[in-house]
């Protein structure tokens, strides 16, 4: 009923060791994906592995090793901060990559942004030439 302290210690050490090794392997997977994937979008897919799941596993290992309850809220705050910033930067990089055509169109299974980009380009072309007749639509 009451396992002695050294057994619990060993189990916690083993769990945190597994977390640390898997978290490090996430980084290696991201590097392999960066080297081997063909274009920017698929490289972005592999780059998010250490940023979210790898950081979660490593922060959990830190919390398990320190064995105090008050570090957990601090670690959760650090992880949530990463969760809030990573999608924003990935969105910006992905949008800039689409606009500057750093992608292989034949690898996409669906392209929902194409219609929006074509419409924006058409509107810009309509507004551009002499600014006379078509300009009133924009106002």
């Amino acid at each position: 009923m009451n396992p002695d302290a050294s057994t619990v210690d060993t189990v916690i050490d083993a769990v945190s060791a597994v977390f640390m090794i898997v978290g490090a392997v996430m980084s290696l997977a991201a590097a392999i994906g960066l080297l081997r994937f063909p274009d920017l979008m698929s490289r972005m897919h592999s780059a998010t592995k250490p940023q979210v799941l790898g950081l979660f596993l490593l922060l959990a290992a830190v919390g398990l090793q320190l064995r105090t309850w008050w570090v957990w809220p601090v670690l959760v705050v650090a992880w949530i901060f990463q969760l809030l910033t990573v999608p924003v930067s990935a969105h910006m990089v992905g949008r800039a990559g689409y606009r500057t055509k750093h992608l292989h169109k034949e690898l996409l299974s669906s392209d929902e942004l194409e219609a929006v980009v074509l419409k924006a380009a058409q509107a810009a072309k309509d507004a551009e030439p002499d600014g006379g007749a078509s300009d009133s639509i924009d106002r």
């Binding site: 945190s16 640390m20 978290g23 490090a24 996430m26 980084s27 991201a30 590097a31 960066l34 920017l40 490289r43 972005m44 780059a47 250490p50 940023q51 790898g54 950081l55 490593l58 922060l59 290992a61 830190v62 398990l64 090793q65 930067s89 990089v93 800039a96 990559g97 500057t100 750093h102």
Partner: peptide, 27 residues
Amino acid sequence: PSLLDRVLAADVLLAILGAALCIDMAV
């Protein structure tokens, strides 16, 4: 080949640095 690839790889390098900092704290 492009600037965005380099930005993405630099982001991954920062994530690897953060992983090393975490492992130092845990060990």
